[in-house]
Write a protein that binds this DNA or RNA. Structure first.
Length: 302
DNA sequence: CATGCCCCCTGCACGC
DNA sequence: TGCGTGCAGGGGGCAT
């Protein structure tokens, strides 16, 4: 599910439900996520107040009054669901999907009466408690590249990170050390918007000394634009992603190439009505790079 | 150091 | 209807 826009959508939902709230109880129904939760996991959370919910790349960070930070990753299929007190009073506890209950591995009981469940069928998600003072040395966060929506992320920075890389642009953008938070969908969509081929060598967005060229500029603008639009839409719901209130994200309806193999290239965007012809005339192609699907238009992405 | 591959796990769509 | 196959939004760990 979750790339930066989905994680940010979840962060905002958790913030509403948890910020300033005390954790009355934490129930671990299945602790064997990506790695096993420590035995004292629930005990270290119980009675603590969540002072804030942050995000770094695809990680969520819950600040606790104990001085710990709860580091959370959704993996491929993780989701959070907030049940408000009034929902439970109305008997709507599981009105969304019965199958949701099957993989509710964690339940957070807030002092407000709300409950927050963590659901993850594939259990690629993870949780880790880290003392705030040690966050700077946390191995999971240490190697992460810049936040793509931060001011520091610009053409010069991206070009520098891609300088001398002997790999495709697609692989470089998926590398969280180059830029942190993109995944398979938004890399495909950003490259499409920048008219850049996913097969192009990453180093070709930089000059000899690593200075940015016009391609680097286009790419950065495309990355920021697609992420901002996706966040506005609550992210993309293909299978598992939901907003914390259970509603679907909507950005999947705005995909221009992802999962659109065989369809006409939508250029110029928005696409022409059915039967019409796009300006480019290309057909969206699917290839496999580094073991993962890439979707792109071979005509207008060079 | 850099790069690519395998694997963790479950669910779903597809073809037969 | 059932069964086998391949594929899925991520990333840690390992071999080369």
């Amino acid at each position: 599910m979750p790339e930066l826009p989905e994680v940010e959508t979840v962060r905002r939902g958790l913030e509403r439900a948890m910020e300033g709230q005390r954790l009355v109880k934490v129930e671990v129904r299945r602790g064997d996520l990506r790695w096993p939760l420590p035995k004292d996991f629930a005990q270290r959370l119980k009675g603590k107040t969540v002072t804030g919910i942050g995000r770094r790349a695809k990680y969520l960070l819950a600040d606790l009054s104990s001085g710990d930070v709860l580091l959370m990753h959704l993996g491929m299929s993780g989701s959070f669901h907030v049940f408000r007190e009034q929902d439970r009073q109305l008997g709507r506890y599981h009105h969304h999907r019965d199958k949701h209950v099957a993989h509710d591995h964690l339940v957070f009981y807030m002092a407000s009466g709300a409950t927050v469940t963590f659901n993850d069928p594939r259990r690629f998600g993870s949780m880790k408690l880290v003392p705030r003072a040690q966050l700077d040395d946390e191995p999971l966060l240490k190697g992460l590249g810049p936040e793509p929506l931060g001011n520091a992320f610009d053409a010069a920075m991206l070009a520098q990170a891609c300088r001398g890389k002997k790999t495709s642009l697609k692989a470089a953008l998926l590398d969280q050390r180059v830029v942190a938070g993109l995944g398979n969908i938004y890399v495909c969509e950003a490259l499409y918007r920048a008219h850049l081929s996913p097969k192009r060598m990453a180093s070709t967005i930089a000059g000899r000394k690593g200075e940015p060229n016009e391609r680097a500029q286009r790419l950065v603008e495309s990355i920021k634009a697609v992420l901002n639009e996706a966040i506005k839409s609550g992210g993309s719901s293909l299978r598992d992603h939901r907003r914390t209130d259970g509603d679907l994200g909507m950005f999947q309806h705005n995909f221009r190439v992802y999962d659109r193999e065989g369809e006409p290239c939508p250029a110029p965007y928005p696409p022409p009505l059915a039967g019409g012809e796009g300006a480019c005339g290309g057909i969206v192609k699917r290839i496999v790079q580094n073991g993962r699907s890439t979707f792109y238009c071979p005509v207008c992405q060079k």
